[in-house]
Amino acid sequence: MSKNFYAGCDVGSTTGKAVIMNDKKILAMAIVESEIDPELTARNALLKAMAQVRELNRLEDMTYLVGTGYGRTEVPFAHKNVSEISCHALGAYFIDKKIRTIVDIGGQDIKGISLHDNGTVKEFVMNDKCAAGTGKFFEAMGRTFKVDLTEFSKLAGKAKKSISVTSQCSVFAESEVISLIAKKNPPENIALGIHESVAKRCYTLLKRVGLNQRITITGGCAKNKTLVKTLKQILKMDIAELSVDPQIIGALGAAVFAKQNGK
């Protein structure tokens, strides 16, 4: 093989993501639903991305492959694994060199990361005690309203005012929301209250790592426009929108690592 292909594979709890690069640019990216077996998730994501690169036929042909995410040690043929914290930092920095603070909202955890001027991790915090403020929390709340995540975000976007949801625990929050719906509160106002509670949780994490401009949001929940808007209002700061899908930033960071190590 004369050409170099560098890949990053982010095996998350909800989705698997893969990014393939060559020496110059991003060639392919893919997102798949997570399977019970993290190795299968990784394989599915990588194969889906490889299908977009004509010269690549086998996983073994990857010049350098880096695994990340909770299933990082299960990525087949990976040369190295790197924590998702470092990968989100490097991925976001690769896209925008001015990024110094990241909030990553994944399927089952949420992280605040601050960066040095060279893109390496300066400080990080993550929740791990419960699903509050994560994608799973949004899924549970969306289920209560019988809508998917996109519709849930749109619903909250229509609200005239918010109704606070005080429970941080996903289970208790669901009960609280059911009570609020039963009291005939407008669903969109409750939905906005839920978004605000998550945004406040992000604010707390970001305060702990330091709120330095420029800030961005990564992970699947970064696609939730109402959440991003609410977070901007709470932070009273702008949030930089990255030029690539924020959900693949971890995999992109892993691919950048692969490129740095495989050259």
């Binding site: 790197v82 924590s83 914290i85 470092s86 955890d109 390496t120 990080f124 791990d128 005690k129």
Partner: peptide, 18 residues
């Protein structure tokens, strides 16, 4: 508890030290 998250934190800490 949370062995996976603990490992992620430790690994990220090691990486942050270069």
């Amino acid at each position: 508890t949370g062995e996976g998250q603990l490992k992620t934190r430790i690994q990220a800490f090691i990486e942050s030290m270069g």
